[in-house]
Design a binder for these strands. Structure first.
Lengths: 236, 236
DNA sequence: TGTACATCAGTGAACGCGCGTTCACTGATGTAC
DNA sequence: TGTACATCAGTGAACGCGCGTTCACTGATGTAC
């Protein structure tokens, strides 16, 4: 009995390879023209296939988008995890800042992929459940940092949280394994959305005429802001 | 000599009216199907025009998008200014929170328009300079609140700002009339991008499985976070 | 090891659709004398 | 107040394009005996 993970036949191996090539080509198109312009026909053309052949591998356009979304979340997640892993576990502040910088670095290098996952939703497209796990990789890194900080006894006096707000974040509390007080969970959420707010503003052009254009200015500005966010997390 | 603002002839009046109808119809389409699906032909069809007739009013598709972008910024700006105006001038915290809530209320009521101006840029489209002033209305409200607060002597000890960061925000300093210290300008920027980060996350689906779905939970969560942001501004 | 059948990848044509934009035109409105 | 000309709005046909998806088909690969 062959295991289901080891493809045996030439057909199976070819299928996996070609599916991968489709994904790579689709990613190239996404990078060049954005998600809205992504077309099955164009991808097939680039691979020297007739347009209908691609339907042997991809049931329709939406599923190709889903593949790209998962791919983008995983690419971002892998980069961020790798960067964060290099930092001393006790250096909570530095772990946070490294995480933020890794997200920004990835976003600048992959603007269309960033827009695909953190920009406006593609109209008429509903993300299926398979995207949830890859989408959680960055939040998971952030929460782990908070848990580590919290468990080492660095517990600032928590701000009280209204019951309605506490109820609102029940899912998040579960995701964090119930290891963090509501106050810290909320600060974590604030940090998370500040991080992506800052990057979206930069990438989507809202810093024009506000923060100088040069990449060193942009980086200095971003780092400054994330250090302030870290203060809000009491990581400083 | 008739003033240039008062249209005299029937032709001129018709032109203004029809241009307005085009904009309204385009906004309806935007609301239903998003910016990517916006088509000159469809707008013309809805107005009972032949598709080529619309070119008497709009030079091309991009310029219609520009009109919609300006329209959206102005709609948001007007709502926010109106809401903020009702608050006692001395109540700086409440002015800030009211502003945040007005932005969110507008965004929830006009999700596609919000996505058009704060979501991923439309690929191949470059916003012209005419969008700058309408886009500055919300930032202007926020800065005015900070200036009022600052001028009433509520000056917390400023965090020192690195020279590179200070240089980076030269444009912003000018926009604020040089009335605010760098530290406060940066806190204002942080507040601004936190505000839009929070709304984008909510609108673009990133709170699914994190913050409970009901509108009262979402509102309670948002208000809580904005109150924390206000603390960072030392408005509390 | 060889044969018969089943599975699957890739072909090529087609359906039906919608788009942005141009162009020569007709007929109504506006202007100058 | 009336006429001659200029301006402009709207028409209808056309160009050239690309898209997603289906379908009957051929021929290669895989499987069971």
């Amino acid at each position: 009995m062959p295991t289901s993970t080891a493809p045996s036949t030439a057909r199976e191996r070819a299928r996996i390879e070609i599916t991968q090539e489709i994904l790579n080509t689709a990613r190239d198109h996404l990078t060049k023209d954005g998600a809205a312009a992504l077309s099955l026909r164009a991808v097939a053309r680039d691979l020297g296939m007739v347009s209908s052949a691609i339907y042997r591998y991809v049931p329709n356009r939406d599923s190709l988008l889903t593949m790209l979304i998962i791919d983008a979340y995983d690419s971002l997640g892998a980069d961020v995890e790798k960067a964060e892993r290099t930092v001393r576990r006790e250096a909570h502040l530095e772990r946070f800042l490294t995480t933020c910088q890794a997200v920004r670095t990835w976003a600048l290098a992959h603007p269309q992929e960033y827009a695909l996952i953190y920009g406006s939703p593609v109209p008429g497209y509903a993300a299926p459940a398979d995207t949830i796990v890859p989408a959680s990789r960055v939040p998971a890194v952030l929460i782990t940092i908070l848990i580590d900080m919290h468990s080492r006894g660095r517990q600032p006096k928590p701000t009280p949280v209204e019951p309605l707000v506490s109820t609102a974040i029940a899912d998040l509390r579960m995701f964090s394994g119930g290891l963090l007080p509501d106050d810290l969970l909320l600060r974590g959420m604030a940090a998370w959305s500040s991080l992506f707010g800052a990057i979206s503003f930069e990438l989507f052009g809202h810093l024009h005429n506000v923060v100088a254009d040069g990449s060193k200015y942009r980086k200095a500005y971003f780092d400054h802001q994330m250090r302030q966010v870290a203060l809000g997390l009491r990581l400083g």
